[in-house]
Amino acid sequence: MQEEVKKHTKKIYKTMTNKEHTLGEKSKEIIIEIFIIVFAVTLSIWLHSWSEHRHQQEEVAVFLGNLKNDIKNDIKNIDIEKKGYQNSNKGYEKILALTTLQLDSIYKSKNVVDFPIYSHGQIMSIGNYEGFKSSGKIGYIEDEKLKQKILNYYQIYVPAVNEVNKIYNDFLFKCFDKMIENADKPEEKMYADPKFKKTIEFLVKLGNNNIRVYDQNTKPEAYELIKEIDKELQK
């Protein structure tokens, strides 16, 4: 392109210094050459912008495809965690239902009370999102509705899942601390203790709350985001 501009610039110079042509002829030739230069530069800029835009949208398509897979994995992991909460709560509710006589009977027969332990860790995939965002490419997504849904999912719903899981884990470890503190006492007395029972009751409530966060907030948003991504990829 630079060579073409130089070529036509030289023609303008030659036209201006050509003593054989009249002023009108020179003006006409110069205008034509300027038009050619402007057209060539404009076309070059447009082609470059078009190529860059196409490349950006190809990056967006790859990102959305990877994001869709991440969200599908999020849903699977959420279902696994939900089942873990449900099973743990069943175990805790059995403990809460045990009477003092039943606890005495269990330990006299040298059996033990099964205390469910299920620690909930990081379950949401954020690598692809964080990489695309940190590279400043989120703006490449032209569908404003889709972009806002992605931002809401990763800035509101994903942190919410991680936060409620962390709160649950913190409280679960408080139960372990109470067990350690009462290690010198018979276990049947600890499980019959009203304060310890209240602790377990609260653990069940936290588990149910986290299931609600999964079912009523995060999963519906995840399914809706997958639909929006499919729409964009089909364009």
Rank of each mutant, 00 (worst) to 15 (best):
D79N: 15
K82A: 12
K82V: 11
Y85A: 09
Y85I: 09
S88H: 11
S88T: 14
N89T: 08
N89V: 08
G91I: 08
G91A: 08
G91N: 09
I95Q: 04
L96I: 11
A97F: 04
T99M: 06
T99E: 03
L101P: 00
L101C: 00
Q102T: 03
Q102M: 05
L103R: 01
L103A: 02
L103N: 02
S105L: 00
I106R: 02
Y107C: 00
Y107P: 00
Y107H: 06
Y107A: 02
Y107F: 12
K110Q: 12
N111C: 00
V112W: 01
I117V: 15
Y118H: 11
Y118K: 10
M124W: 02
M124P: 04
S125G: 04
G127F: 06
G127W: 04
G131A: 09
F132E: 02
F132H: 01
F132S: 03
K133E: 13
S134K: 15
S134C: 02
S135G: 02
K137E: 09
I138M: 15
Y140E: 07
Y140D: 10
Y140F: 15
I141F: 07
I141K: 05
E144Q: 14
E144R: 10
K147M: 09
K147A: 05
Q148D: 13
Q148S: 12
Q148C: 00
K149Q: 14
K149G: 02
I150E: 01
Y153D: 03
Y153G: 01
I156K: 14
I156A: 11
V158Y: 05
P159Q: 08
A160R: 13
A160P: 01
A160N: 14
V161R: 01
N162D: 15
E163D: 13
K166W: 06
K166F: 10
K166A: 13
I167E: 12
K174P: 01
C175F: 07
F176I: 14
D177F: 10
I180M: 12
E181G: 00
E181N: 06
N182V: 01
P186W: 08
E187D: 10
K189F: 10
M190A: 04
A192C: 07
D193Y: 08
D193C: 10
D193P: 06
F196L: 10
K198Q: 14
K198I: 09
T199P: 00
F202S: 09
